[in-house]
């Protein structure tokens, strides 16, 4: 009986580990370059979404942004609609979370 309980527990732990690992593995980083179609800054300014038109697929992709540096650039309009953006994001919970969000243009 003891042995059976141990086996069940071991299998459960393995299953949990596999599920957890799968979640990490699924949050793959996607790289994209696209032009901003729309910026929606949330009330309070703590988050925003930016819709980018992917240069490769021409599809619109909505990116969630929460980092202060990028949000500040939205607020003072250093980044505006029409700017081309180099973006890295991870998809989790149905949202594309920005990991890097930079204008491609320089000086």
């Amino acid at each position: 009986m003891k042995k059976a309980v141990s086996v069940v527990m071991a299998l459960t732990l393995m299953a949990l580990g596999t599920v957890s690992f799968s979640r990490v593995a699924h949050a793959e980083e996607v790289k994209m370059i696209g032009v901003i179609q729309k910026i929606d800054l949330a009330a309070g300014g703590k988050s925003a979404t930016a819709t980018l038109k992917d240069n490769k697929s021409s599809k619109n992709v909505v990116i969630s942004i929460t980092d202060d540096l990028t949000l500040d650039k939205f607020k003072d309009h250093r980044i505006v609609e029409g700017d081309e953006i180099r973006c890295k994001f991870e998809t989790e919970g149905g949202k594309n979370h920005s990991k890097l969000f930079r204008k491609t243009a320089g000086c």
Binding site: L69, D72, D76, R78, R102, K103, T104, A105, G106, C107
Partner: peptide
């Protein structure tokens, strides 16, 4: 921010020339 407006995008893109972020 005031300084990095110009200094972060020198050399043709963000963090291209000197490659440092002051964060």
């Amino acid at each position: 921010k005031n300084c990095m407006v110009c200094h972060e995008s020198a050399g043709g893109g963000v963090l291209v020339k000197r490659g440092f972020a002051f964060t």
